[in-house]
C-alpha cells in the first residue's frame, strides 16, 4: 500500500466561499506533514473533511485504499484516524486520568460495557504512561477544570494519541502551550509517534515548530495548496512567505 491518505479534488464551500478548493494530495506511511497557511486558508476545514466532521461538496477521500468520503467521525475513528482540536475537546467534569481511561476503553471497543469497572490496574498503568510525555502524570488525579489552558491542549492530544491511530491529525497542537514547554513536548511526542510508525498531519502557525518537526510542508492559501515539499524549500518560497506570513 503506497499511501495512507489521498484526497482527490476535495472541495468545500460555505455560503459561496470556497474554504477548500480542489485539493488533491497523497501522504505516505510514516510521513510527518505540517500544514501552514493564513487564517481562513482552509487548514481546519481540510482536517474536518478528512475526519468526517464535514461532508465535502465534491471530491474523494481515500484512507488505506478505502473510500471514506463523507463517513461520519465515529466510523473514520474506528478505522484508525484520530485528531486533536484547535479548541481542546475534553471531558471537563472528569479527572485527567478518567479522560484517558475513557479513551483507552473506547480503543478496546469496551465503551458499552456496563458491569466491569472502567478503572482497572492495567488500564490505569497504561493511562499514566500515556500521560507521561505530556507532563500530565502528576496531574492525573486532578479534575480537568483545574488544568491551565496549555494542559487542556496537551490532554486533548493525549486523548487522540491514546486511541493508537495510524493517522493522527493535530489542529494547532502547540497554540496555547507555553513556549518553554512547546519543544520539549513536541520532541517526545514526535519521537513516540515516529517509533509507532504513525502518520501525522499537523496544522501549525509556529514556523519554528514546522521547520523542526515536519518532513514535508503543505502551504494552504485561499483553499488551495500553494506549495508542497520539504520545509526548507516551501518556507523559503516567496509566494508562500507572502501568503502565509504576510511578508516576502
Amino acid at each position: 500500500m503506497a499511501t495512507v491518505l489521498e484526497t482527490h479534488g476535495l472541495t468545500k464551500s460555505f455560503g459561496g466561499v470556497l474554504a477548500v478548493d480542489d485539493v488533491s494530495v497523497a501522504i505516505a506511511p510514516g510521513e510527518i506533514v505540517g500544514i501552514v497557511g493564513a487564517n481562513g486558508a482552509g487548514k481546519t476545514t481540510f482536517v474536518n473533511l478528512v475526519t468526517g466532521y464535514l461532508k465535502p461538496d465534491r471530491g474523494r477521500i481515500i484512507y488505506l485504499g478505502r473510500d471514506i468520503t463523507a463517513h461520519p467521525p465515529r466510523e473514520v475513528t474506528g478505522l484508525g484516524v484520530a485528531r486533536s482540536f484547535q479548541i481542546p475537546q475534553i471531558y471537563a467534569s472528569l479527572t485527567v486520568l478518567e479522560n484517558v481511561l475513557i479513551a483507552l476503553a473506547a480503543r478496546e471497543g469496551q465503551s458499552l460495557r456496563a458491569w466491569a469497572p472502567l478503572s482497572t490496574r492495567v488500564r490505569e498503568a497504561e493511562g499514566l504512561i500515556l500521560l507521561e510525555p505530556f507532563g500530565l502524570t502528576e496531574h492525573a488525579a486532578r479534575p480537568v477544570s483545574e488544568l491551565p489552558q496549555g494542559g487542556l491542549k496537551l490532554l486533548d492530544i493525549a486523548l487522540a494519541s491514546a486511541l493508537m491511530p495510524r493517522l493522527l491529525l493535530l489542529d494547532e497542537p502547540t497554540s496555547g502551550v507555553s513556549s518553554a514547554e512547546k519543544f520539549g513536548v513536541m520532541d517526545t511526542l514526535v519521537s513516540i509517534l515516529q517509533a509507532r510508525g504513525v502518520t501525522v498531519i499537523f496544522v501549525e502557525h509556529d514556523m519554528d515548530v514546522v521547520t523542526n518537526y515536519a518532513g514535508r510542508v503543505l502551504a494552504f492559501s485561499e483553499g488551495k495548496i500553494l506549495a508542497d515539499g520539504a520545509p526548507g524549500v516551501v518556507l523559503a518560497d516567496p509566494a508562500v512567505r507572502k501568503a502565509v506570513l504576510g511578508w516576502a
Partner: peptide, 9 residues
C-alpha cells in the same frame, strides 16, 4: 464505575 457509566458522563 463502568466504561458505559463514564461514557454517559
Amino acid at each position: 464505575t463502568s466504561p458505559l457509566g463514564f461514557a454517559l458522563r
